[in-house]
């Protein structure tokens, strides 16, 4: 293929020279193997982009504090004011959660109530911190420069003991149930005391009310006691913490007992490098059609489906 030549009006005599200079210039400035010369023109759009980046973007996206496109300070997408960059837990908050749960043995529900962080988040923080400590013991290298940079760019929630802290997130979120998504017209008499309980029943027989679906049911009871005449909030919170701790311990014991029981059912045999683990198994227990999910092994008359074309192999869960 003939190389493309820069410039439209070239005489035949100058063509050769221009070809040489062009290819030489291009070859040295861009790639050594390319014969095409660089397009020196810049489109209008591109020019405007470069201009905007130079004038507006290069200096305005500071890396030491959160900066978003706006227009609101916490809005990353200019066209969508309904999505905001919400704050993340600060490192000190994470550390406190971890020490409270792991070192002082406080129940996760109690920590959640104290610091106004969702219980699931508390559990996740503890899990991640535990992994971090494991890494430290193993001597693995952390992504410290990355973590420092990222934490500077994100808005952070702070928490100080005894302060009037802004809660990190609502701790008593109730997911809207599918059954309660419909519009319903229920005529009731004016004199009737129509509560949340009744509303749930109106949607469906089995639908529980918001009070029963709350993830922090004990807190509702505390507030009720505090609102009573001789209610002492601090005292009932103290009780709640104790109860939560007991419940958590009981649950942990139950888990330990179960795993022990499972261990007891497995016969272990050490043979050199290997340990054989033998479990009792009822081969008759294969479901109605012999294709029950958890069944292993080949059975006469039942074709194995798993190697068939088009069968999805992507796991749905990782234990």
């Amino acid at each position: 293929m003939a190389p493309r030549i820069c410039g439209t009006s070239t005489t035949l005599a100058s063509l050769d020279a221009s070809l040489q200079t062009c290819s030489r210039l291009a070859a040295h400035t861009t790639r050594s193997f390319s014969l095409t010369c660089r397009n020196e023109k810049i489109t209008k759009n591109r020019y405007e982009m470069v201009k905007w980046i130079k004038e507006r973007a290069t200096n305005s996206f500071d890396k030491s504090h959160p900066t978003y496109l706006g227009p609101h300070a916490d809005q990353p997408f200019p066209s969508n004011p309904l999505f905001r960059s919400q704050s993340v837990l600060s490192e000190s908050m994470k550390n406190r959660i971890y020490t409270q749960v792991m070192d002082h043995g406080v129940a996760m529900k109690a920590v959640s109530e104290e610091m106004q962080v969702d219980v699931r988040r508390v559990a996740a923080v503890v899990r991640l911190k535990e992994l971090e400590h494991q890494w430290k013991l193993e001597g693995k290298k952390f992504a410290t420069p990355y973590a420092k940079a990222v934490m500077k760019m994100l808005p952070q929630s702070r928490w100080a003991q005894g302060d009037m802290n802004i809660p990190h997130e609502p701790i008593n979120d109730i997911p809207v149930h599918k059954l309660s998504m419909q519009q319903l017209f229920v005529p009731v008499s004016e004199s009737r005391h129509f509560t949340r309980e009744d509303a749930a029943k109106a949607f469906h027989e089995g639908l529980l009310s918001a009070d029963k679906r709350s993830p922090q049911r004990e807190l509702i009871e505390i507030e009720r006691q505090a609102a009573e005449k001789d209610g002492d909030r601090a005292k009932s919170i103290e009780e709640f913490r104790k109860e939560a701790q007991e419940a958590e311990e009981a649950y942990a014991n139950e888990l330990a007992r179960k795993s022990e029981l499972e261990d007891a059912n497995i016969k272990k045999q050490q043979k050199g490098r290997f340990e054989f683990r033998i479990k009792r198994y009822n081969s008759e227990n294969v479901g109605k059609y012999g294709r029950a999910r958890n069944v292993t092994g080949w059975r006469y008359g039942q074709a194995l489906q798993e190697r068939k074309r088009g069968m999805v192999k992507i796991p749905t869960s990782v234990p």
Binding site: F61, F142, T144, M153, E169
Partner: peptide, 17 residues
Amino acid sequence: MSAFAFIPRYLEVNPNI
């Protein structure tokens, strides 16, 4: 990067590890 740096609330991230 800071223009795109946000972490939605359904994730809990530990950037150290």
